[in-house]
C-alpha cells in the first residue's frame, strides 16, 4: 500500500499572553492510500488541529507534513488553496452548507473551482438524496444535510476525505448510515478517509486508529479486520 500522508515531528503551538500551548507536540505517523483512519481522543487533545493541518486549513509551527511526497509546510497560501481544491474533501460536524443554496447547488458549487467534478445529481444519488435534491438546508434533516455535505466533498473526486465528528450532531441510526457511506467510499472508491471523533466505538470500523492525548500521538494501531459500519453500536 502506497503512503499518502506522512507527519514528521509536527508541532503546532499557540501563544496566549506569555504562555505557550502545544496543540500538537512532535506528532509523527503515516497514512496509506485507501485507508480508513479514525483519530481518537478526548476534546482538547489536538484532534481538530491534526485535521486542520491535514486539510491545509492551518499552518504548522514546526516539522513536515508530506502529502504524496510534497511538503505542505512549505506551501504558500495559494498553493494550500489549490491543494484543498484538488485533493481534499471536508465533512464538518455541523455540515456547513451554504444556507441560501439548495442541496444540488451546494454540490454544484464545486464546479466553480474545479472543472473536473462529478455531476452533482450523480453525487447526490450516490449518497441517496435524489428526492431531496432541490431542497434548502433548512428543509432537510440533519442526516440529509450531512449526506449533502459528503456529496459536496466527493463531488470534486478528492483523494483525501476529512471528516470532523461527522456523526456528532446526528442520532444513532442516522449516524450509522453516514458511517456506512464513508466506509463504502473507502472500500469501493479507494478514497483515503480520515475521521476525527471522541467516540471509541468507531475504532472498530477503521483500518488504522491514531490515539491523541495532550497533543501527543499516544498510539497508532492497525486493525486487520475492521467491522462493518452497520454492525457498530453506540
Amino acid at each position: 500500500m502506497k503512503t499518502l500522508i506522512e507527519f514528521k515531528e509536527v508541532v503546532k503551538e499557540y501563544t496566549r499572553g506569555e504562555k505557550t500551548f502545544y496543540a500538537l507536540n512532535h506528532a509523527s505517523f503515516q497514512i496509506g492510500e485507501g485507508e480508513m483512519v479514525v483519530i481518537l481522543g478526548p476534546s482538547g487533545a489536538g484532534k481538530s488541529t491534526l485535521l486542520n493541518l491535514l486539510g491545509g486549513m492551518d499552518n504548522a509551527s514546526g516539522g513536515q507534513i508530506l502529502f504524496d511526497g510534497a511538503d505542505l509546510t512549505t506551501y504558500s497560501d495559494d498553493a494550500l488553496t489549490d491543494y484543498r481544491a484538488r485533493n481534499v474533501g471536508v465533512v464538518f460536524q455541523f455540515y456547513n452548507l451554504i444556507p441560501t443554496l439548495t442541496a444540488y447547488e451546494n454540490v454544484a458549487l464545486m464546479k466553480d473551482i474545479e472543472e473536473d467534478t462529478l455531476d452533482p445529481a450523480e453525487a447526490l444519488r450516490a449518497v441517496g438524496l435524489e428526492q431531496q435534491m432541490h431542497q434548502f438546508p433548512s428543509q432537510m434533516s440533519g442526516g440529509e444535510q450531512q449526506r449533502t455535505s459528503i456529496a459536496r466533498a466527493l463531488a470534486k473526486n478528492p483523494r483525501l476525505l476529512l471528516c470532523d465528528e461527522p456523526t456528532g450532531a446526528l442520532d444513532t441510526d442516522t449516524g450509522r448510515e453516514v458511517l456506512a457511506l464513508l466506509q463504502q467510499m473507502s472500500r469501493e472508491k479507494k478514497k483515503t478517509v480520515v475521521m476525527v471523533t471522541h467516540n471509541s466505538m468507531f475504532a472498530e470500523i477503521a483500518t488504522k486508529v491514531i490515539r491523541v492525548k495532550n497533543g501527543r500521538i499516544a498510539s497508532v494501531t492497525e486493525n486487520k479486520e475492521p467491522k462493518d459500519a452497520n454492525e457498530v453500536n453506540w
Partner: peptide, 16 residues
C-alpha cells in the same frame, strides 16, 4: 463567518 470559513476549506481562493 462560518460560511466564509467553509468556502475557504472547500478550496475557494481568497481572491475568489
Amino acid at each position: 463567518r462560518i460560511q466564509i470559513g467553509t468556502l475557504k476549506a472547500l478550496g475557494f481562493s481568497r481572491g475568489r
